[in-house]
Amino acid sequence: MIVLSVVAVASACGSPGPREAGRENRPAVAVSRGPGGAAAQQNWPAAVPDAGLAKGLVLPLEEYMVTYPEEVTLDNVSHRMTAECMARYGFHYVPTPAGRNPPPSVDAANMVRRYGIMDPAQAGTYGYHLAHPPGQPPAPSRFTRAEYMVLTGRADAGPAKSGARLNYRGKDIPQGGCLGEAARKSGENVDQTLVERLNKDSLDMSQTQPRVRAAIGAWSACMKKNGYTIANPLVAGDRIGGDTPSGPEIAQAVADVSCKATTGLVRVWYQADAALQRKEIQQHQPALTKVRQQLQAALRNAAKATG
């Protein structure tokens, strides 16, 4: 038997404005949760931060990012197509439904924690810990060699052989196996590499802006007055250990958010971050337009599959 994780193989400065029109105009899809997958939805992140210092903040690049509900839908549509493909070869394939381990933020911008912890209510209860920590990953699934070959298009768990085509009982196996076929049909493989790189670059570069550096310095000085020597809010929780929040951790987290509020750090940082992203979008507009079109096509396919 081959032990394999299904997840591993499938898988201008100013006040913040409304979410970009590009996201609003995406094809609407009913969230496809899969059997038993609805239980975690109550812990899914809000489309726009709805509490704390990040409330209402949306970055320009989020227009091009896959949201968590969209990711769940695309994954589950792909799972269903994979199961249908496996059935053609006589195999009963039951993937783990997506949506059970939601992240804290709706997309890769990670706005609710982008500049460190920003919600006073969460800080006062959970410290730097997440209010809804991810659950345990699903146990690895076991496949026979034949199942693995049809699922992945590989004869074994080693590197894929270029151009090699396999068959099972006289039937050709799709390129990349049933997983590959499902990804192509569903549009699950939406390439977010460029978007995520630009997103990281703007966060990194924003920290070098004079106004942001001054605001971080003011935050650090505020923390010093509260008894904490920390140079950057992005590392404030690094030395906090333990599986559950402790009293000292909560005290530091509360001071952290309070200092962000009194120094205006979040608004200054957000404005610099957003301005850099607008420049990035101008510089990479053709490539980003292709990313958006690819995502829209995938969502249209998902809408047809779930409709």
Rank of each mutant, 00 (worst) to 15 (best):
V7M: 11
S11D: 04
V31Q: 10
G34T: 02
A38W: 04
Q41K: 15
V48S: 03
A51H: 15
V58Q: 08
V58G: 05
L61S: 02
E63N: 07
F91V: 09
G99T: 03
G99H: 10
G99F: 10
R100H: 14
P103W: 08
M111H: 04
R113K: 13
D119M: 01
G124A: 14
G127I: 04
P133K: 11
P134E: 01
Q136N: 12
A146T: 10
A146Y: 10
E147V: 09
D156E: 04
P159T: 04
K161A: 09
A164C: 12
G170C: 06
V190R: 11
T193Q: 05
L194Q: 05
N199D: 12
Q207S: 05
T208Y: 06
P210K: 15
R211W: 01
R211E: 06
A214S: 11
W219N: 08
M223Q: 11
N226Q: 15
Y228R: 09
R239T: 03
T244A: 12
P245D: 07
G247Q: 12
E249S: 13
T262V: 14
T263E: 02
G264A: 10
V268Y: 08
V268M: 11
Y270W: 12
A272N: 07
A274T: 00
L288H: 14
T289F: 02
Q293V: 02
Q294H: 12
A298F: 06
N301F: 06
